[in-house]
Design a protein around this nucleic acid. Structure first.
Length: 180
DNA sequence: GCAGTGATCATA
DNA sequence: ATGATCACTGCC
């Protein structure tokens, strides 16, 4: 089912993840990072999405239930962190591109020690990776970032997909928390 | 601007 | 089996 409504779900998730807290537990250490940048990759006809050429060993996790962690390796050295979205069987995910302290998807995964061992697991305490709401954080959002619960978010084209064709490379599927 | 770096995928 | 590619980063 490739309905526009379903596409909206991934876009909604990508947008809603902005400002949320990505939590990583490594042993006894817990790292909390506010998500500042995401991108949506939606379905079999999105030419920028790994699923645009069908299911493969690498992208099979994208077809899992929403909340599954999709981590893949690229450029011989970098891990990319994604959260699977949509109904089971529909390949889509949100790439976490950056947080307040770690800008760039590969820097983020390096800092949080995210690699293939998380691929296919579900977000949660058990995986050592989960999302928390910002509500428990005081003084948020900071001055200039909008009212509580209403962040200023930019929508931009996605990064690093020149091969995706005019239609898909220009989609505003990238969400960035506006800085003051 | 472009080199590094190696798994993955398409082609055969 | 082989070659091109790659949702990037860091250094020139």
């Amino acid at each position: 089912m490739f309905k526009a409504l379903e596409n909206k779900k991934t876009l909604r998730v990508a947008r809603d993840l902005i400002g949320k807290i990505l939590v990583r537990k490594i042993g006894k250490k817990i790292i909390r990072e506010r998500i500042t940048e995401t991108e949506a990759y939606i379905g079999p006809h999105d030419l920028a999405c790994h699923s645009s050429r069908g299911k493969t060993k690498r992208n099979e996790v994208m077809y899992c239930v929403a909340g599954t962690i999709y981590v893949y390796f690229t450029y011989g050295m970098h891990w990319m962190l994604n959260i699977v979205t949509e109904e089971e069987g529909f390949p889509a995910a949100v790439l976490i591109r950056g947080t307040e302290n770690f800008k760039g998807p590969a820097r983020l995964t390096k800092a949080l020690q995210i690699d293939k061992s998380l691929n296919g697991k579900k977000l949660g305490k058990k995986a050592g990776l989960w999302i928390e709401n910002d509500l428990k954080i005081k003084n948020f959002p900071p001055a200039g970032l909008g009212r509580a619960g209403k962040l200023k978010i930019s929508r931009l084209p996605r990064v690093g997909i020149p091969y995706a064709g005019d239609i898909w490379k220009n989609k505003l599927y990238r969400f960035v928390l506006k800085e003051k």
